[in-house]
């Protein structure tokens, strides 16, 4: 009696879930394992090896609960990312990059070059790079698969930058002072976001590509 699903059957479950809106590979892999384990258990309990029949029965009973879980997952994920980003603000590598940024900025402020430096452009390049690289680079690296934690961190990074520069700065009077302070803080966050994403990237690269 067959007890384990084949690679093709696992792929079938994966494709089905992907087409049902479970877009992130890390989330989907956990659900695929759950569904596959349940079907294998049903093979034993029902003394059968009809994969498609057991899969169909399982989905009729559980699809709603499975997909509901995915939407609940997003908030838990955002919370996890933000906690990690805040924690990484005080990591020595992040502090070192932030210090470097401050040293360069202060040096420029004390030279005649300051008039030629467009800090807004620098900020857009830094924030844009974090968001762009976190969305595009992993997309190709993981064979066009999306990783939830990396994609969501890019979205959060974009949202925080947008909030500060497009909303907060439009409602304050002391523009130059607020802008300088905001730029220092947001750059610190952006460096931490980049550092956090690199760490997540390494973790998932090991798990999804090399395993």
């Amino acid at each position: 009696m067959k007890q384990q699903l084949t690679q093709e059957e696992i792929q079938f479950i994966d494709n089905y879930l992907k087409n049902s809106g479970v877009e992130y590979i890390d989330t989907r892999s956990e659900v695929v394992d759950h569904v596959a384990s349940e079907i294998e258990n049903r093979f034993i309990e029902n003394n059968t090896s009809d994969f498609y029949e057991e899969f169909k029965m399982y989905m009729i009973q559980h699809k709603k609960a499975l997909l509901k879980n995915i939407h609940k997952y997003r908030w838990a994920l955002d919370k996890r990312i933000l906690k990690q980003v805040v924690k990484n603000l005080f990591h020595q590598k992040v502090l070192a990059f932030q210090t470097l940024f401050l040293v360069i900025s202060i040096t420029l402020l004390n030279t005649s070059l300051i008039d030629q430096v467009d800090f807004k452009a620098i900020h857009i390049v830094i924030a844009g790079s974090v968001v762009f690289l976190s969305l595009i680079y992993p997309f190709f690296w993981f064979r066009k698969q999306k990783i939830s934690v990396i994609n969501r961190s890019a979205v959060l990074c974009y949202f925080i930058n947008y909030l500060v520069f497009d909303l907060v700065l439009k409602i304050v009077d002391d523009y130059i002072f607020t802008y300088s302070i905001s730029l220092v803080i947001i750059t610190w966050f952006n460096i931490s976001f980049a550092f956090t994403q690199v760490n997540y990237f390494k973790f998932y690269k090991d798990k999804f590509l090399l395993s």
Partner: peptide, 30 residues
């Protein structure tokens, strides 16, 4: 599943759980 995974993800987000992934029986297991 609708109750278990949100609870696991919340505990993970709160820092009470950590994850480890392994390839088992043709698939990844968390």
């Amino acid at each position: 599943e609708g109750a278990l995974y949100p609870a696991l993800h919340k505990l993970e987000a709160d820092g009470f759980l950590e994850v480890e992934m392994q390839r088992v029986d043709n698939r990844l297991r968390k």
